[in-house]
Amino acid sequence: MDKIYVKDRDIVVPGDLLAEGLNYLPSGKAFRENEKIFASTIGLINIKGRVIKVIPLAGKYMPKKDDIVVGRVIGISHHGWQIDINSAYNADLNVGEGVSEYIDLNKTNLSKYFDIGDYMLAGIINISESKFVKLTAKNRPYKKLAGGNIIEVSPTKIPRIIGKQGSMIKMLKEESGCNVAVGQNGWIWIKGIPENEAIVARIIKTIEAESHTTGLTDKIKETLKKEIKRGGK
């Protein structure tokens, strides 16, 4: 008979039995074995009708099509750039996806657009079956991220750092006067005056560590106001 063993927001670990019966459907980090559905990672249960989803609470970034990522140039070739996207898979940015204007590849040094070590905000336009990742960086909101500070957080905490409808990130930008670009790959770029770049980095780390506390946005706003004042604009 169909049976469900978990409820919304339960924490599950790999191998936990979630439900029995073909009526239920596994989603996220859940898998079916015959009639039964199990969790494959440590995660949080989310039930919508017949769909039982496991939202992972840990894990490295695995690239997905349409993700927005912060990437770092690690190589330049004849046809474009090789980009580290904080994943086991490096990505390719072809010249045509990196620059809008026409480039004569025989006469142009590509490092004048993106040099080794430069950061960018880019979108994943394709990921092949054999895990070749293709990026685009030429149209808004994608761009080169010049200067600033780079920090790393767990990719599973990114939704919390962005907040509902972007509320958290909007507040961070407004209160600090910094420009912030968040990659779903866990890299975050912060640009302002150095003191404030440091304060925002520290605050984002706090959000990461305390992501489960209620009323976090207000708490963070208060701390940020205090810190910015103390740090001096």
Partner: peptide, 9 residues
């Protein structure tokens, strides 16, 4: 990028 940021900070 981080070197420049840390130097200034």
């Amino acid at each position: 990028v981080i070197k420049k940021y840390l130097t200034e900070l």
